[in-house]
Design a protein around this nucleic acid. Structure first.
Lengths: 242, 242
DNA sequence: TTTTGAAATTTGATGCAACAAAAAAATTAG
DNA sequence: CTAATTTTTTTGTTGCATCAAATTTCAAAA
């Protein structure tokens, strides 16, 4: 049926080869769209068509199709009809589910990362935190959200668990659009700052449970703010699009 | 850039509409391949080419491409070279990571499902368990694995968390090929049976923690058996392909 | 036998056109 | 003005051809 695995001597190229580069138009189209989604650049309900994506990304329909198909698979886009894909709305049940998964997975990642963090990692986190603080002071909310994302994922990546990080990304992908138009309201709050500081302290102390708790707290704080926003604004989209 | 969301009256189709059916050749090609992977029908290392998949599935290259691309995104297939996609080997580090995630997520799903299970659900679980027992007696190992999968996912689905179930599926997708050629060795063990019984008891008692513990135990048991098999056979594929 | 290297073959990526289906717009009827 | 109906436009799907790049084959050289 399919080609059987190579049985040969399996010449391992020594110790290098964590490769995997895979640049193609489809790949970068996917990456670009995904980034837009995570950043909240696309409003929920925005309709994406094959040809419009192709045009914006300056590629043909084939790579655009690749990107859209993959994103639908991850839940970053959904089919709102046989020929209509849109950026999904985040309903309260959706947010509940996402949050529960995030608590599990980001908590796990944070825990696992704790004993892998280097001094320079921690220093980098502190730099990111400064950028967050400065962003809050100067009302540069996009910067705040970006730096916040970097802060979290720097930690998660140090878990050494690649698939885990990928899954967490797909969760953030789902949250992103909900922030659209909410930057000030959302980023203004400084509740997250103290959670980050607790996380930093836990990392320095090599205390996995403390780091996990800090991250979980951060997620819960975000949940509170987002859910009240959703309750206030988003009743018209009752159904879950998970 | 893209079409803005409809502002109109948003005619909700009443109460029905959990729809989302999306039958297309690409979709079914994806489903078919995915199923083959989960069932362990494909040996790790098996090379898949666009055209061979297209031929086997009796479709053109386009739907085959869809399926392969999506599966790569989920980690069910990997790029072993610029023009080579294979069924991934499961290294011990990979198994460790998968297991950690499974414990988190399947534990969560089991917990959440506990209070949603109906009498008839539980009855169905008992039926499945009988099929597992019979399969063990009669050495019908494929049946055992199938029924085992149904047992777990019936529970998980009752969590009501769709995205969670999808993610868990992608984890099983990654485990499937590792069972290839190991059916007897793996399914022979009856360790799983008592875990399932504990899970059933927990469900009847509406004890989420007990159900979670039973499922976690089941996962750990599988981990032990698989990891020793991997350690014995699979040294030649050192690198992680997560 | 092993190694090397070049030729032949196969591969994935990409663009594109045709088609049926669906959505949107325009029109008509009430 | 609203609602139904028809017309027009747009959409995703699918198959396929092309092309550069990578793989495989195979024979010559060591």
């Amino acid at each position: 049926m399919f080609a059987a695995p190579k049985k040969g001597k399996e010449a391992l190229p020594g110790d290098i080869a964590p490769i995997g580069r895979h640049s193609s138009l489809g790949e970068s189209a996917y990456a670009t769209l995904k980034d837009s989604l995570i950043r909240g650049a696309l409003q929920p309900g925005t309709k994406l068509t094959l040809r419009s994506v192709a045009q914006v990304l300056e590629v043909s329909t084939t790579p655009a199709r690749d990107a859209i198909t993959r994103l639908i698979g991850e839940g970053g886009l959904i089919n709102a009809g046989p020929k209509t894909v849109i950026v999904p709305y985040l309903s309260l049940p959706d947010l509940d589910e996402l949050t529960a998964i995030r608590l599990s997975l980001e908590g796990l990642a944070a825990e696992q990362a704790t004993n892998h963090m280097t001094e320079s990692d921690i220093h980098e986190l502190e730099t990111l935190q400064e950028r967050i603080n400065r962003g809050l002071d100067e009302a540069r909310y996009t910067d705040v959200l970006d730096a916040n994302k970097d802060f979290h994922f720097l930690i998660y990546r140090r878990s050494g668990m690649r698939r885990l990080v990928t899954i967490i990304e797909s969760l953030w992908l789902r949250m992103g659009p909900a922030f659209n138009g909410l930057y000030p309201e959302f980023a203004q709050s400084r509740t997250g700052v103290s959670n980050h500081l607790w996380a930093l302290r836990g990392l320095q102390d090599r205390d996995p449970a403390a780091v996990r708790a800090a991250i979980e707290n951060d997620i819960r704080g975000g949940y509170r703010r987002l859910s009240s926003q959703l309750a206030a604004v988003g009743e018209q989209h009752g159904e879950s699009n998970a």
